[in-house]
Amino acid sequence: MSITPVPPGWWKMPLHKEEKIWISIALIWCIAITIAMPAWHFVGQQNSSQEYYTISAEDYNTLAEDFMEKYKTGTETAGDWEWDVVTPPPGSDIFLRGMQWKWDPILKLKKGETYRLHLSSIDVLHGLSIHPLNMNFEAVPGWDYVLTITPTQAKEYRIICNEFCGADHHGMIGKIIVE
């Protein structure tokens, strides 16, 4: 009975065959799925970045503004919103700024080229979700998170904010164009 006290000697009870087999399988499985994580850093190409810096929101904002000014190639509007369209050269440092409730700018990238994406927020937490890829990263104020990305399909993507950030959180939708 599991609701009554147990007499001494229970520690010495041997395991039954089924228990032994199942616990062995479970243990091997647990070790395997632990090893899978470091292993993917060597054999896989999709990993959470380990490059990050602390930076004040003001400093990050200045860098992002400079970046947008330097590579601006147009503007785009939707509803009451307006964005700069920015076309950075392949291999460059690019910025994606989260703020209540907008992702800036609209990035135009080239398929198969690699970029260093600096992700951060200048107010509260935001969540970067590249749709419909369903790639998700956190934008944290005070932290410059550098994601080295290589877009592999040409397409117009949406960026959905998936970390609750206030009243118009659901309206915070941006765009990345891959050509």
Partner: peptide
């Protein structure tokens, strides 16, 4: 969304 870009 809420009036900006729509999502499919």
């Amino acid at each position: 969304g809420s009036g900006g870009f729509s999502v499919e």
